[in-house]
Amino acid sequence: MASFELIEPPMLGRASYDRADQIRKHPDRLAQAWAGAEVLRVDHQGRYPVGDDGAIAWDVADGDQPPAGALFLGDADGYRWAVRVDEVGGESADARTGAHRLSHDEAGLLATALGMLNWHRQAGYSPVDGTSAAPAQGGWLMRNDAGADEFPRTDPAVIMVVHDGGDNVLLGRQTVWPDKWFSTLAGFVEPGESLEQCVQREVAEEAGITVHSPRYLGSQPWPFPRSLMCGFEAVGDPNEPIELLDGELGEARWFHRDDVLAALERNLDWGVDDPDVPLMLPGSISIARSLIESWARAPRS
């Protein structure tokens, strides 16, 4: 089997800032970390303010105490927080289209903010007794009036580049995507299932292809709404008939490496309407793009 490694970590997984979790449990230290801190404001559509260079336009914290629902992000050349707002005024961007213009740490801070604030929005009631719950410890848990704590939820998913050990790769197109948009296959991990088992099950369910030799390559947070994408490679047989068994895909096809390399060289984002372009690949912030590019550019055996 011809194998490969990721060329570099996926875009949203390169941050190295200090999450400063030692501060979260101490209200006095959180208040000190709020005073004069920089604050990321995110609206309900996931948009955030940006400057002329596309970087996050941070605000300065107001008051002596963080407001209800504020999320302590950590220390990245100073303390950073995030808050949800109804609307972001002025120039703005969203992570899918703007994260490639951010530094590694800013991209990581944004991914954390989106994932956690999305969890806040869906965790307002305690799963223990159904009573209302509110953020505590700098937003890193939800606590009801009885003191029962609920910790952040991250949904594990696998995403895999399926190849034949040579020059062919299996890509799929969701039913709602235009005809030329293709990406890797992916799916959520079920209870009682290993990551490797999930790789094999998802490929079989989505494309009817039996794969073997699943191998972990790397991971990426995906805050839409709060997933962790675990990247794999696996090997399948292009001669096996493709069957779209679960209806999630509108099409699945094997592509030759040269076609993938040509699409990478065009470097066009999804949404470009060009009748002469036979293949469009996912954007640069996605681990799907990292997997596809790393496979396509790996040395040929």
Score class of each variant (00 low, 15 high):
residue 3 S to D: 14
residue 5 E to F: 10
residue 5 E to G: 07
residue 6 L to V: 09
residue 6 L to Q: 01
residue 7 I to P: 01
residue 9 P to T: 01
residue 12 L to F: 04
residue 13 G to S: 05
residue 18 D to R: 06
residue 18 D to I: 03
residue 19 R to L: 15
residue 21 D to E: 11
residue 21 D to V: 03
residue 23 I to N: 06
residue 28 D to K: 12
residue 29 R to P: 08
residue 33 A to T: 08
residue 33 A to H: 05
residue 35 A to Q: 14
residue 36 G to M: 04
residue 39 V to N: 01
residue 41 R to P: 00
residue 41 R to S: 00
residue 46 G to I: 04
residue 47 R to M: 09
residue 47 R to T: 15
residue 55 A to S: 04
residue 56 I to E: 05
residue 56 I to R: 00
residue 61 A to V: 07
residue 63 G to V: 00
residue 63 G to I: 01
residue 64 D to W: 05
residue 68 A to F: 02
residue 68 A to D: 02
residue 70 A to L: 03
residue 73 L to F: 00
residue 74 G to F: 11
residue 76 A to N: 10
residue 77 D to S: 04
residue 79 Y to G: 06
residue 83 V to H: 02
residue 83 V to R: 00
residue 83 V to I: 14
residue 84 R to Q: 08
residue 87 E to M: 11
residue 89 G to L: 08
residue 90 G to Y: 10
residue 96 R to G: 07
residue 98 G to F: 02
residue 101 R to Y: 05
residue 108 G to M: 03
residue 114 L to W: 02
residue 115 G to I: 12
residue 115 G to W: 11
residue 116 M to A: 10
residue 117 L to E: 00
residue 118 N to A: 14
residue 119 W to L: 06
residue 122 Q to C: 12
residue 123 A to Q: 04
residue 126 S to G: 08
residue 126 S to C: 15
residue 130 G to R: 07
residue 135 P to T: 00
residue 135 P to N: 03
residue 136 A to F: 08
residue 139 G to R: 00
residue 141 L to N: 01
residue 141 L to S: 04
residue 143 R to E: 08
residue 146 A to I: 10
residue 146 A to E: 15
residue 153 R to G: 10
residue 159 I to K: 07
residue 159 I to T: 03
residue 160 M to K: 00
residue 165 G to H: 12
residue 165 G to F: 07
residue 167 D to I: 12
residue 178 P to G: 15
residue 182 F to C: 13
residue 182 F to L: 09
residue 184 T to R: 04
residue 184 T to G: 08
residue 185 L to W: 03
residue 185 L to S: 00
residue 186 A to S: 13
residue 186 A to N: 13
residue 190 E to G: 02
residue 190 E to L: 11
residue 191 P to Y: 01
residue 192 G to Y: 08
residue 193 E to R: 01
residue 199 V to M: 14
residue 200 Q to V: 07
residue 205 E to N: 12
residue 209 I to M: 06
residue 209 I to Y: 05
residue 211 V to Q: 02
residue 215 R to H: 09
residue 217 L to I: 03
residue 218 G to P: 03
residue 218 G to S: 09
residue 225 P to T: 03
residue 226 R to T: 10
residue 227 S to A: 14
residue 228 L to F: 02
residue 232 F to S: 09
residue 234 A to I: 04
residue 237 D to M: 11
residue 244 L to E: 07
residue 244 L to K: 05
residue 249 L to M: 14
residue 249 L to C: 11
residue 250 G to M: 14
residue 257 R to P: 14
residue 264 L to C: 11
residue 265 E to G: 10
residue 266 R to D: 06
residue 268 L to S: 11
residue 271 G to K: 13
residue 272 V to Y: 09
residue 273 D to T: 12
residue 277 V to M: 14
residue 277 V to N: 05
residue 279 L to F: 03
residue 280 M to Y: 08
residue 281 L to Y: 08
residue 282 P to Y: 01
residue 284 S to G: 04
residue 285 I to M: 13
residue 287 I to G: 01
residue 290 S to A: 10
residue 291 L to G: 07
residue 291 L to M: 05
residue 294 S to I: 13
residue 296 A to P: 11
residue 297 R to G: 12
residue 300 R to Y: 07
residue 300 R to V: 15
